[in-house]
Design a protein around this nucleic acid. Structure first.
Lengths: 351, 351
DNA sequence: GCTTCAATTGTAAGCGCTTTCATTTTTTAT
DNA sequence: ATAAAAAATGAAAGCGCTTACAATTGAAGC
């Protein structure tokens, strides 16, 4: 005997109302449900005539494919799980935008989750996405350990880690060459004649912060300028710490004609402090940022900075997935992307 | 006879490897699979003792719930489909962030799609999300007609339209009072003594653009200042059109001591043009924007503007869904949100 | 016309879970 | 102790689809 209807009978939701199945279509078209499935998925061989028959039946009944059922049966969800620290700000939107663009054409979708830079939450979210049987994961996670991620890969989880490099699973990583970026920034300053260059670093416990500083040091070394801790201030990637950095540097009597910052927010903060101190940018002090965030061009003068090709990283991640998980061919991707210098108005030769 | 294994046998994906089922758990625990399901979902009544037994079996086997199968059986996916025009920029990230925060606690997830302000694409995306059996949709769509959306609602699709108001389905809409925002901006300018106020409008074929201008006109009327087209320029919401707006206004001989812009980008553009013309902000000309985007506070002087509570709109949408679709109680939400004035440095009384 | 092989279609067994209903066990009241 | 009520559990029928395999049809070759 048949079961009763499920769900709350008092409110007809969309899914209860519109539930034309493949079975009904097959009956109306006078074929088997297997054939209907074949035309839906465009698999197997179907005679043009029957195909039209099925299409007509689907149209007439207003059939809508049930992807959930298909996923269960085929063990493929055509869904990519995406973990980012936060959704606000322009960085992750740009990255996801890059991914989405590439995935849309392949009819894949993204299931989004935020990790809040908290190991516990990051793990829970990864878990949830795995429970939802995502075909692959794209992870920008900051708190979880390298080991944890390596482990997932070894368990056979298809994942790509973005903006982070882990030796053991380098093949699953797509990241920016931050050392090179740091190098490019300071090298630019050196090239236009500066030798007294202050550096406002990002949090040094973060790989980005450390690597960018390393690049700065390499540039100095390459050009025969001695590096001194006295000209370096460790900020925390927030605008405010840029302001504080300048004040601290000046307070300790540091002399500089240029300041390189580990990101644009801090550069913006630094410019505020410089203005307060009556130092003009770029006439008295040149400033260079890092990331090339949206507002960099809105500052005045426009901020010279290092471009972080974040959208490209997002699309590389998509291509990785398309090739590795879905077997689409000719999807090329690189693992380490290069930053490049964006010249605007905050740098000029010292007087 | 049993079917053969499916999928590509050459590469063991995660899902092929780790496929402990509820059945196996039930056997190990010596209970039926129904009971296992009960403990997983915390439904029905399960004795504490058996519950522990099941938990232990799950832990030992490394069981992972298969949400896809559960969705098929229960006809609920715990997934919200989200359509936004684009992912880049900070606006939609902030909105989705607001939604995500509210949904995370309820263990719902978001499936993201972009509509690119193209009716065809928007429809396809809505369709795809429906095929994936999202329990509800949150839509910021710009190209699709009111009628189309009304129709969906009438078909029983659970959806909430954000940043757009449609009379017939007002209950499904969450939007900003743009007229009020426009009013607030110009009213502020009037209150501090300006009477010659230029207005750089957004695209007037868009509801936002039109409503904000209406607010501006109402403020003028309220304060007994006559409105004149000569002081209004229709831009397109891009920074450049703000620059062009000022130039055009000046070129046509318009006299003004303040300029209200329909968004922050145009305000930023306007400031650039003003600077070119040697007019100081705010000493010679006051400027006010609209939206309070991220970079508004980074400009110098900081941009006085109208706050668009976009994150709040995102969270309201989540609450709507939580209450209406999932029956969670005490999830309050408003349909029309109010903007408010953010005072920074670009406005002052005329000299 | 008859075989052979390829193209097309159908049959039916799952995919892993939820949920109704029936059954069994436990508790409570008398 | 015993009947009645409540709590806990189990059996099994789907949810709507995919897909291996079998069966059928059609075309080509001789």
């Amino acid at each position: 005997m048949p079961l009763k209807l499920r769900g709350n009978p008092s409110r007809k939701t969309y899914s209860e109302v519109n539930m034309v199945t493949i079975k009904q279509v097959s009956e109306k078209a006078g074929v088997s449900s297997a054939t209907v499935s074949r035309v839906i998925n465009n698999t197997g061989t179907v005679k043009e005539k029957t195909r039209e028959l099925v299409m007509a039946a689907m149209a007439e009944l207003g059939y809508r494919h049930n992807v959930v059922a298909a996923s269960l049966a085929s063990n493929k969800t055509h869904t990519i799980g995406y973990v980012v620290p936060e959704l606000h700000g322009s960085f992750f939107g740009a990255m996801m935008g890059g991914t989405e663009q590439a995935l849309r054409q392949a009819k894949k979708h993204m299931l989004i989750a935020t990790g809040h830079s908290d190991a516990q939450i990051e793990k829970e979210q990864i878990d949830a996405l795995l429970s939802r049987r995502c075909d692959a994961l794209i992870l920008h996670v900051e708190a979880v350990s390298d080991e944890y991620l390596v482990n997932l890969v070894q368990q056979g989880v298809e994942l790509v880690v973005v903006n982070r490099f882990i030796e053991e699973i380098g093949d699953n990583c797509i990241s920016l060459d931050n050392v090179k970026g740091g190098y490019l920034a300071s090298r630019h300053l050196l090239d236009i004649g500066h030798t007294q260059i202050a550096y406002i670093a990002g949090s040094l416990f973060k790989a980005d912060g450390k690597n960018r500083l390393t690049g700065h040091q390499q540039a100095l070394a390459d050009m025969g300028v001695e590096y001194t801790d006295n000209l370096t201030y460790e900020g925390n990637f927030q605008a405010k710490s840029g302001t504080e950095g300048i004040r601290a540097l000046v307070a300790r009597g540091a002399k500089f004609t240029a300041v390189a910052c580990a990101n644009d927010e801090m550069a913006s903060g630094a410019m505020i402090a410089l203005r307060e101190l009556g130092r003009r940018v770029p006439e008295d002090v040149s400033v260079i940022g890092f990331d090339n965030v949206d507002f960099a061009s809105y500052l005045s003068p426009g901020l010279t900075t290092i471009d972080y090709p974040v959208q490209k990283i997002g699309s590389m991640a998509a291509h990785w997935v398309l090739e590795r998980v879905y077997g689409h061919i000719r999807h090329e991707y690189q693992h380490i992307l290069s930053p490049r210098l964006i010249l605007r108005g905050t740098t000029s030769s010292p007087e």
